[in-house]
Design a protein around this nucleic acid. Structure first.
Lengths: 243, 243
DNA sequence: TCCATTTTGGGTACGCCGTACTCGAAACGG
DNA sequence: CCGTTTCGAGTACGGCGTACCCAAAATGGA
């Protein structure tokens, strides 16, 4: 086993055969990932350090490395774990628009439950089983309309990018705000506030000005906002479908 | 000045009045940002550490803090600096579709020149002057069609999200690959390759299978791919415009 | 001219991080 | 019961951002 470095975590399944000699494992990947997700949910991804996860499990940081090769792999496992929360039918129903709408809302729900997931989803795609299941569902929802797979992948990518970005905006840079150590209220008032005010007073950005003023008293609740953009994206997809 | 912490970098302009006592500044924000951008272009954002930037300037790490409060602020400055590279007319021409197409291609060009920018753009928005200029341009391109500012902002967000994500895919997770210490070829072959093959052989993801097979020999060059998705997004915007 | 004042560049050091390496303890097969 | 194997845990290393400190440099006022 000389070249086992740099191998995808999905190729390194957890050892479970417990028939030989040696001490019994006290933990499991699932337990570690679960703890890490809980910490990330509560305090942001950057709080889920190896030391803190281990502390929460009552063990030492290095013990985790018996189960997970690198922290990056742990993050991949975390991502795929929360993607398993999506509730989708085993196969698309045939109504592509309602299928993709359902998937979009489910992805949004995961993002709202796990804000750290949103920032991560825009990075390298996770090739874990749950992520692949969702991707497969969306791809096959657009199958059978005469599009070639390249175009289907492009449309699905467009949709999931919209969903991810919209949720990102919706959770309001929560993770960033937490990283800088201030809550949303303080951030808006102390950090953005004065600068925004100066920018607005300058008169150089009238449209931005209007958008900020509206944003203070949004006349659309977040979900309707999400729905509006989603429908526009789906309109764009419909424009790409023949007929 | 007790409460000067946590103040936006845009509210802390560089000191330039050089009429009092004290040693002359040997550097400037612009020089530091320029070096940082060069390093990030060459070796990725995570290589642009305070120590390495300082080394490249022939000074010590802590000296940079005379000009820039925190590394996060430096990153904001870097972002806004590259956004200044966009070449846009001072005002939209009135043809919203060609205006937004132009802006999209310009943003894509910046992303291709500075791959690290792409990963960052999906985080908290930079409120620097160059970023605001671009945002203002896109917003006002959709002004005058009877949409309220909320809807305009949503459409513009949708478009810039698409552009960012598409470029992200186009540069192929370069930054991630670099961070894990392997080039793209090694990554595809050693890391993704075997796992992908196993997934494909399982037969569980036929659509994903097809998309991978096509991706190996893409029949659309990257720019056409970008254009295809862009046109779909613009179609979606057109569907939101009255008339 | 000289000195008090101010601001610089740079060094040292602290507390984090991921993780390589090591080793005694525990659990089995023979 | 003992050799083999795998565990939990400790120690340590290099790197990060950055708080703090200080000597050198540049001024304006005496």
């Amino acid at each position: 086993m000389s070249d086992e470095e740099h191998v995808s975590i999905w190729m390194r399944p957890e050892r479970v055969e417990r028939s030989g000699p040696g001490r019994r494992p006290g933990f499991s990947r699932a337990q570690i990932v679960e703890r890490a997700v809980a910490i990330a949910d509560a305090d942001g991804l950057e709080a889920a350090t190896m030391r803190r996860i281990a502390d929460a499990m009552g063990t030492g940081a290095m013990s985790l490395y018996r189960y997970i090769p690198k922290r990056d792999d742990l993050i991949d496992l975390m991502l795929d774990t929360v993607m398993a929360e999506l509730e989708l039918p085993p196969r698309p129903t045939g109504d592509w628009r309602s299928d993709l709408t359902l998937a979009s809302y489910q992805i949004r729900a995961v993002g709202l439950r796990h804000p750290w997931q949103v920032a991560l989803a825009s990075r390298r795609p996770t090739l874990g089983p749950s992520s692949l299941r969702v991707y497969e569902f969306m791809l096959s929802a657009l199958d059978g309309f005469g599009l070639d797979i390249d175009e289907i992948a492009s449309l699905v990518g467009m949709l999931s990018d919209y969903v991810n970005s919209a949720v990102h905006r919706e959770i309001g840079w929560l993770d960033e705000a937490r990283r800088t150590g201030m809550d949303m209220r303080r951030w808006m008032t102390a950090y953005v506030g004065p600068h925004i005010r100066r920018v607005l007073d300058s008169g150089e950005y009238p449209m931005f000005n209007r958008s900020i003023m509206e944003a203070r008293v949004p006349h659309l609740p977040p979900e309707d906002r999400f729905r509006y953009g989603l429908d526009r994206v789906l309109d764009g997809i419909a424009a790409g479908l023949p007929g």
